[in-house]
């Protein structure tokens, strides 16, 4: 019961799509929540910095997924 190359590539593409879009969506919403939080400018800035760090981390996930996709595409195996 393995996963075919085609299925695996579809799953990787799907994960990339979700990761890429989800972070943008949640980051915008959470930034607005920070605005209404009642925290000081300093506090709000700290949270925004935290959110940006998370977004950058997500970028690293994307790099890994992109590398994995290239590896699977280039590989000769059809069942994983």
């Amino acid at each position: 019961m393995g996963t075919t190359k085609k299925e695996l590539l579809k799953m990787i593409n799907d994960a990339m799509l979700l990761e890429d879009r989800s972070i943008q969506i949640y980051q915008k919403h959470l930034s607005a929540a920070v605005f209404w939080s009642g925290l000081t400018q300093w506090g709000q800035e700290q949270l925004r910095i935290g959110l940006n760090v998370l977004a950058k981390e997500s970028g690293r996930h994307m790099d890994r997924l992109t590398a994995l996709r290239s590896r699977v595409e280039a590989g000769g195996k059809d069942v994983y």
Binding site: G38, L39, T40, W42, G43, Q46
Partner: peptide
């Protein structure tokens, strides 16, 4: 932690 909470909300 209380110090951080204070700093986050001071001046509100």
């Amino acid at each position: 932690m209380p110090e951080l909470t204070k700093r986050l909300t001071e001046g509100v």
